[in-house]
Amino acid sequence: MNRQDTSDIVFRRILAVFPISILILVAGIFFQLAYSSLPSLKHFGLAFFYNTTWDPVAEHFGALPFIFGTCLTSLVALLLAVPIGIGAAIYLAEYAPPKVSKFISILVDLLAAIPSVIYGLWGIFVLVPYMRNYVQPFLGKYLGFLPFFQGPNYGVGFLAASIILAIIIIPFIISVSREVILAVPSVYKESAYALGTTRWEAIFDIVLSYGRAGILGAVVLALGRAIGETMAVTMIIGNNVVITPSLFSPGYTLASVLANEFAEADSNMYLSALIEIGLVLFLVSIVVNILARFLIWSVTKGPGQVIK
């Protein structure tokens, strides 16, 4: 009996190494990135975040244009993706017949499984020409009085990148908000019907307001994806260090400057400035994800299943 107890304790101790290593890994990534970006952190300090010049030759690094690009593209992507994503999720959860809903959900999962490099490929050869020939001339003609739709029309740029981002995050918004909507107890909806509401009123006033936190969580989660999305954006944003309100202008994001310049960084300061950008991405995505999890778990009551 005694011998069995010891073997059990030994097994448990050995196995405990693995989950602990996950916690250590996250901390390790943070310290490694912080340590490697130390030269840049020391040299530029806070100016790194509000300086607008990015000059590898003079070794003068300010990340504001990239921060601006990431904020702008993510924001526009959310504006496009949130209504469509939540709308489709409501349709799947409340309106579609179960079989149709199941089928469409599988297709949405397919969309989510497409690697981002393929979105980028499609972006370069299908989306960008379409933007250049139809969408941007149209926007420039009818909404050209707004500063967002002015400037030369290349096709590549903030707007194209935002649209591809929107397409990439829509499946996430759909699947998480669908789950949240399905988690709303149907008693509430039935009570609303009993009071004489229409179907849409019951959904909008009761279901959506009950699942508000969870849907917000889905949106925040999607924001996290948009901030970190690298390949598709890199391929069609145009790689241009600039701060401008024009959505037609080629630009840069935090992630895409890493993808483009990291492998050719030749000096220590250059490398460390790029790693600092990585550190910023790491910290931002952790904050965003923690926020999203709390919001989603507050509605679905716990972490839920990863594979259904």
Partner: peptide, 14 residues
Amino acid sequence: DVMNGIPSIVYGIF
């Protein structure tokens, strides 16, 4: 779950 949300390029840098 948080690790799942970290951009993949950050793992590349690490």
